[in-house]
Amino acid sequence: MDGKSPDKDQRRDLHGTSFVAPDGEFEDIVRGNIAWMLAVARRILRDPSMAEDAVQLAFAKIHRKLEGFEGKSRLSTWMHRIVVNEALMMLRKQKRENVHPIDPLLPEFDANGCRVDDPFTVSETSEDQLQSRQVREIMKEKIDELPEPYRIVLVLRDIEEMPTSDVAEALEMSEANVKVRLHRARAALKKLLEPMMRGGAL
């Protein structure tokens, strides 16, 4: 169901200006797409030099397979999948950090199943505010504080906007598990952002 959602094409429209036809020169493809591909790899790996390595490996694969590209999906969608997979492969080799439990960041309920957290009202915020440099920096910092198995699901689903089925495949887990992790990741991130939201800064 989710795999057929149109959000994927909408996401790719963000790269619309970088789109190059499959018969374009490889050099044009590299120059036109490397910026967003590097951004994707950086978000997944968080390490700039590892991200560069992942992008280099991805382009090597793209170059090898470009002739066989049948245009079943958009070129940028295909390239996105390749760079995500290369970055994930490097991530698996990376020493695991941030393996702390997520439970302290999850909402609490009493014996009757009632919410026990201290409620607060979110202030009015414009789309511009959410996209301000300051907010984006805070967001990146807080996302990096999430335990790794949750961070990666949030990055792939909510930032990269990959469909649940693709994320499940890339991470070798069930779709149900992706959904559970995504929800917990968002709930934990909300907890981490709470001081900012209470202060009206977000």
Binding site: R136, I143, D158, I159, R186, K190, L193, E194, M197
Partner: peptide, 12 residues
């Protein structure tokens, strides 16, 4: 607050 968190994430 959950929706706000999601909107701020998607803004990235």
């Amino acid at each position: 607050a959950y929706r706000r968190t999601l909107a701020a994430t998607k803004a990235l």
